[in-house]
């Protein structure tokens, strides 16, 4: 595809997941980048997104870009639409991963270490096959190691997109109390512990 520098790119048919405001944009281009230490993944992803935007615009297609840090973008008109479509849907519908027990997209090769950006469009792009089921299997490392007990261990499937997999309020409560004690409130254990995030090496519990 036209995008250089992305770790992974996929196209998903997301017709099922659209609300009326964006019903015409039934293809999602999911762009993923491996988060390197100290690198500004977000701005790189946004650059890749604008490449895709330009490509679509030139050909007269409509699009809606959802930036990687969509929850932090406020004050713009268009930012109000970001929450209508999660990156996770783009990622799973384009077959680039499943939603793991840790509530994050897990890719076979990169685990949960990817940052995601989405471009929704009405261009009739050929869609990849979606991932329909969780591949976590019996692995419960993130359930066992989550310090706040937020990870329930329930498994995701494309048919139950709204099932509660992680109790987010437990996670965020712990982050808040940590913020009072130290500078680095983010925990990230559920990412680091995941065998897929360690390049697929299996770990004994």
């Amino acid at each position: 595809m036209l995008l250089q520098g992305a770790t992974l790119v996929g196209v998903g048919d997301v017709t099922q997941a659209l609300t009326s405001e964006i019903i015409h944009l039934n293809r999602a281009i999911a762009i993923a980048m491996n988060r390197g230490l100290g690198e500004d993944t977000s701005s790189k992803l946004i650059r890749l997104q604008s490449v895709a935007e330009g490509w679509l615009k030139e050909r007269g297609f409509r699009y809606l870009s959802i930036p990687p840090d969509s929850d932090r973008r406020k004050g713009k008109f268009i930012s109000r639409l970001y929450k209508l479509f999660p990156h996770k849907t783009a990622a799973t519908c384009s077959g680039l991963g499943w939603v793991g027990k840790n509530g994050l997209v897990i890719n076979r090769d990169y685990g949960s270490k990817l940052s995601w950006a989405t471009v929704l469009t009405n261009a009739p792009l050929v869609a990849d096959l979606p991932t329909e089921k969780s591949q976590c299997g019996n692995c419960n490392l993130c359930v066992i190691h989550c310090p706040s007990g937020a990870v329930t261990g329930r498994e995701w499937s494309i048919n139950e997109p709204y099932r509660e997999i992680v109790k987010y309020e437990k996670c965020s409560t712990m982050k808040k109390s940590r913020r009072l004690l130290e500078d680095r409130p983010n925990c990230g254990l559920c990412i680091n512990i995941c065998p897929y995030s360690r390049n697929g090496k299996t770990v004994k519990t």
Binding site: I22, R62, K76, F77, I78, R80
Partner: peptide
């Protein structure tokens, strides 16, 4: 045009 385009136009206007 649909809602997303309107909103992007509004952002451009601002």
């Amino acid at each position: 045009y649909f809602v997303p385009e309107i909103l992007m136009c509004a952002d451009a206007l601002y």
